[in-house]
């Protein structure tokens, strides 16, 4: 299978992608467990899967479409009732630049 090394740098990289802060000690422990789990996953490499169609869905369902007819939205207070921080009708976050995309 792929060449890989489960080192602290990789764990740090994955942790950043996953947005999970961790201490060096946690990264160390996780790295060790990761190595074991990944080695186990590597077992799949034994199987010949050439030409096998990947299966992303449990069932073969197609074309589930809804009509473009408006339904009910939540009242703002209900929609934002769980918001950890608000400024009026906005969710409040630290300064960011621009919009995503």
């Amino acid at each position: 299978m792929t060449e890989k090394k489960i080192d602290r740098k990789l764990i740090r990289h994955i942790a950043l992608l996953a947005r999970i802060e961790m201490t060096d000690e946690q990264a160390e422990t996780l790295g060790r467990q990761f190595a074991g789990i990944v080695a186990y996953m590597d077992k799949l490499g034994e199987l010949d899967t050439d030409g096998v169609e990947p299966m992303a869905h449990a069932l073969d369902v197609r074309n589930v479409l809804a009509e473009d007819t408006p339904g009910r939205s939540l009242p703002v207070e209900q929609a934002m009732a769980n918001a950890p921080a608000r400024d009026g009708g906005f969710y409040k976050v630290p300064k960011v630049i621009g919009d995503s995309q």
């Binding site: 809804a66 007819t69 408006p70 339904g71 009910r72 939205s73 939540l74 703002v76 929609a79 934002m80 009026g88 009708g89 906005f90 969710y91």
Partner: peptide
């Protein structure tokens, strides 16, 4: 979802789960 696709209304008035 079937929230209205509308521009210019007060923030977070066209949202749902």
């Amino acid at each position: 979802c079937r929230c209205a696709n509308r521009f210019g209304d007060p923030p977070n008035t066209h949202t749902c789960p």
